[in-house]
Design a protein around this nucleic acid. Structure first.
Length: 277
DNA sequence: AACACTTGCAACCGCTCCAAT
DNA sequence: AATTGGAGCGGTTGCAAGTGT
């Protein structure tokens, strides 16, 4: 069929927004709203931009409730846990973090958090190697390798890491593993924490993520069902990754339909149902 | 000081979804 | 039921700023 472009590219400005454009858009939206029609908005506002660009600029930068600045440890944990659970559903992940946009979260994950994970993974691998490996008496065996593909996120391609069987991570294909064990990823024991020494912390924290209807409860009690992703990386889980906090399911999503759509349409969703009060 | 390389992030692209017709 | 057009999403790109040599 083919689709018409969202705007006449020859007649719209592109590239970085000037302060004047920002001001024009902001003032217009604050005065008139978007009217639910981004396509017509730029002309009404007197901007030589396409509606799509205006929408993005507003949502990702100009909105008054946007939070700029560094991500906190709590936010790291939320991202980590929800990515583990949902894959790259940035809009849903961002919806749990007031003031953060999907673009923010996505960029943060791609540029920083993923590297942080890999770094910790590398460190843990070294630690495990030192702690658990017997003194080498002969040439080391050729170890199996795992390419991590999680929840259909086929692009998530951490470096192929040699895994020692004693470390507890199997070489079974993660995708199969995930579908097999849903909704209890740990039930058949295919995935276990490779580093027992990091699971002893005990504390809890409740993170308010919205003033009205959303909070996440974090504690170290029990083994969460969300740890598959991080376990596959060599972490005990999100809490393992970030200071010992373990995510405990207690999500209150502003728009439940989003979550059901996410969980039911392609079997990449939540391990268990959110509850509402 | 100058250049090369890396990093972070704003912005764009192309696609799917969905409501309206 | 088929088509259309807008909204929204995830992936990718481009560039400015920062850092290293």
């Amino acid at each position: 069929m083919g689709r018409a472009p969202c705007c006449d590219k020859a007649n719209v400005k592109r590239g970085p927004w000037s302060p004047e454009e920002d001001a024009t858009l902001k003032i217009y939206i604050e005065k008139h709203g978007t009217g639910g029609n981004w396509i017509a908005l730029p002309q009404k506002a007197g901007l030589k931009r396409c509606g799509k660009s205006c929408r993005l600029r507003w949502l990702n930068y100009l909105r008054p409730d946007i939070k700029h600045g560094a991500f906190t440890e709590e936010e790291d944990t939320i991202i980590c846990t929800l990515y583990n659970r949902l894959g790259s559903r940035w809009s849903i992940i961002a919806s749990q973090m007031p003031g953060r946009t999907d673009n923010d979260v996505k960029n943060y994950w791609n540029t920083k958090l993923k590297k942080k994970l890999m770094l910790r993974h590398a460190n843990l691998s070294v630690t495990n190697h030192i702690l658990h490996s017997p003194p080498p008496t002969s040439a080391p065996p050729i170890l199996p390798t795992v390419k991590t593909e999680v929840f259909g996120s086929t692009d998530f391609d951490f470096p192929t890491v040699p895994l020692h069987p004693d470390y507890g991570i199997t070489t079974e294909q993660p995708q199969k593993l995930y579908s097999d064990v849903m909704p209890y990823a740990h039930a058949n024991g295919q995935v276990v924490s490779p580093s027992e020494e990091v699971s002893a912390a005990s504390s809890s924290i409740t993170v308010e993520t919205s003033s009205s209807h959303s909070f996440l409860n974090w504690s170290t009690a029990g083994v969460g069902s969300n740890d598959l992703f991080l376990s596959a990386l060599g972490f005990g889980g999100a809490g393992d990754f970030l200071g010992g906090y373990e995510y405990q399911e207690n999500l209150y999503f502003p728009n439940p339909s989003i979550m059901w759509a996410a969980s039911e349409t392609d079997a990449q969703g939540l391990h268990q149902s959110p509850t509402y009060s």
